[in-house]
Simulated scan of single mutants.
Amino acid sequence: MKRKLNAIWLKRLFNIWPPYLGAGLKVLEITEQWDYARVKLRKGRLNSNYFGTAYGGSLYSMTDPFYALLLVNQLGRDYIVWDKGATIKYIRPGTTDVYCEFKLSPEKVLEIKQLTDQQEKYEPEFEVDIFDANQQLVAKVTKILHVRRKR
């Protein structure tokens, strides 16, 4: 039987994982209920672009796996959850450290479960706002997940 990582261990692994370390990313929190996560991008020389602002790929990377991880851990073993797509809209340059939060309410999980059970698959969308240290909006990311029941 396969064992799942708990939220504390997953957070620790993310924070030593080379792609996240290299991008300057740090997972600040993942709740044990799998309903919230918070991530920080530490702006530095290795993740700044030609203009000295946060590199767009690092901004996207900080949002990449979290809604899929939160959702699959709430839905359980009977469901498959994949990232299907994403778009990012840059609002202003990231000149400081930046942060984003992922919130997954019980109502949203129930809605996804019900819609997935009614059809072969369901593709929910989530929005993630990325803010700088001054609470200024830097970017908006729209994530699309693919959810289906295991056969």
Rank of each mutant, 00 (worst) to 15 (best):
P18E: 02
P18I: 06
P18V: 09
P19F: 01
Y20P: 01
L21D: 01
L21P: 10
L21V: 14
G22R: 08
A23C: 13
A23D: 07
G24N: 04
L25N: 04
E29Q: 10
E29W: 09
I30Q: 00
I30Y: 05
I30E: 03
T31S: 14
E32A: 11
W34T: 02
D35Y: 15
Y36D: 01
Y36F: 15
A37D: 01
A37R: 00
R38Y: 07
R38M: 02
R38T: 00
V39Q: 03
V39A: 01
K40W: 05
K40C: 10
K40R: 09
L41Q: 00
L41S: 02
L41I: 01
R42G: 07
R42D: 04
K43H: 08
K43T: 06
R45L: 15
R45N: 05
S48Q: 05
N49C: 07
Y50N: 05
Y50M: 08
A54L: 11
A54T: 03
A54Q: 07
Y55P: 06
Y55K: 00
G56W: 15
G57S: 11
G57W: 05
S58K: 01
S58C: 14
L59A: 03
S61R: 04
S61Y: 04
S61G: 14
T63L: 10
T63V: 08
D64L: 11
D64F: 14
P65S: 03
P65F: 11
P65E: 00
P65A: 05
F66E: 00
A68C: 09
A68R: 06
L69F: 15
L69C: 07
L69P: 07
L71F: 02
L71I: 04
V72I: 12
Q74M: 02
G76H: 07
G76W: 12
Y79D: 03
V81Q: 08
V81P: 12
D83N: 13
D83P: 06
K84N: 07
G85A: 13
A86E: 12
A86Q: 09
T87G: 08
T87F: 15
I88E: 08
I88A: 10
K89F: 12
P93E: 04
G94P: 10
T96Y: 13
Y99K: 05
Y99R: 07
E101S: 02
E101I: 05
E101T: 11
E101C: 13
F102S: 00
F102I: 01
F102M: 01
K103T: 11
K103Y: 15
L104N: 08
E107D: 13
E111N: 07
E111T: 08
I112M: 10
I112L: 04
K113W: 06
K113N: 02
K113D: 00
L115M: 13
L115K: 14
T116P: 01
T116Y: 03
D117F: 08
D117M: 08
Q118C: 06
Q119M: 08
Q119Y: 14
E120M: 09
Y122V: 04
Y122W: 15
E123S: 09
E125L: 14
E125P: 06
E125T: 07
E125A: 06
E125R: 09
